[in-house]
Computed example of a mutant assay.
Amino acid sequence: MAYAYYLLCILLLALFLSALNTAQALDYRTQIDEKLKNLLIEAVADTSSFTDRFDAEVWLLDMSTRMAKQVPNPEERLEILRYVHQEASRVDLQPELVLSVIQVESNFDQYALSWVGARGLMQIMPFWLREIGHPNDNLFDIQTNLRFGCTILSYYLKIEKGDLFRALGRYNGSLGKARYPNKVLKAMSSKWYEQ
């Protein structure tokens, strides 16, 4: 039964990809190739943060296509996306919000280093490693960085009682100023929630 379901999912994904290519429904200047299709099939095998395998396939394909300009390597894109979904879901954040924060913070550069020393995709300050007693953790590691960033953002969202604008300002250290929250919200509405 599970094998038949898996084959059905693969067939549906192939049909979906075929329809997208034929209709040229995606205008992200990226061709969906066989390698990407196979990577997606492998990626959805790890569905730890997805409740439905088909949802995983659709989300990973959509977000991977949107991210192709920033991260040309399909394996790297899927690794980031799996961890974004996993870590965002772990702390009840929307994965698209996390993608928006990453776009503004590092533009998906895993090794980004700010002038004040913030590191990685979500630009985490290294003092947190000492604070929690993990001085040897690597903030350039995708999962570690996302775990820290998502945990911090979720905490600030709770402190601000769901006020995303204020939570984003707090995350960036610019509470009370509009520039950073507006950039993240614009990225979210124009790229990651774009229909």
Rank of each mutant, 00 (worst) to 15 (best):
M67A: 14
E42K: 03
K35E: 15
A45V: 15
L60Q: 02
A56C: 12
A56E: 07
L39N: 01
L36T: 03
Y28T: 07
P74M: 10
K35D: 15
L26Q: 08
N73E: 15
D52W: 08
D52S: 04
D27A: 12
D27P: 08
K35T: 14
A43H: 02
N38F: 15
T47I: 13
T51Q: 12
S64I: 03
D27R: 07
N73T: 09
Q70P: 01
E34N: 08
D27N: 12
L39K: 01
A43N: 01
F54S: 06
V44Q: 05
L39M: 05
K69W: 08
F50Q: 01
S49L: 08
L60H: 02
A43V: 03
S48I: 12
Q70E: 14
L39P: 00
R53K: 13
K35H: 14
L61I: 11
D33M: 07
T30Y: 07
L40V: 13
I41G: 02
L60M: 03
N38E: 14
S49D: 08
D27G: 10
E57P: 01
A56I: 09
A68W: 00
W59V: 05
E57M: 13
Q70L: 12
T47M: 12
A43P: 01
D52Q: 05
L40Y: 06
Q70Y: 14
V71H: 02
E34G: 08
V44T: 10
L39G: 04
V71R: 00
N38T: 08
A56P: 00
P72R: 07
N38Y: 14
K37F: 15
D27I: 04
A56R: 00
A25K: 02
K37T: 11
A45P: 00
L39T: 00
L26G: 09
Q70I: 02
Y28L: 11
K37E: 13
D62C: 03
I32M: 06
R29D: 10
D52K: 00
D52L: 07
W59T: 04
I32D: 01
S48H: 07
D55Y: 11
R66V: 01
A56Q: 03
A56S: 10
A25P: 02
M67D: 06
I32A: 02
Y28I: 05
W59K: 00
D52P: 00
P72G: 09
F54D: 07
A23F: 15
Q24Y: 05
R53T: 15
F50H: 02
E42A: 14
S64K: 02
D55T: 10
R53I: 15
F54G: 00
A25Y: 05
S49M: 06
L39H: 01
T30H: 06
T47S: 12
L60I: 03
I41Q: 05
Q24G: 07
K69A: 11
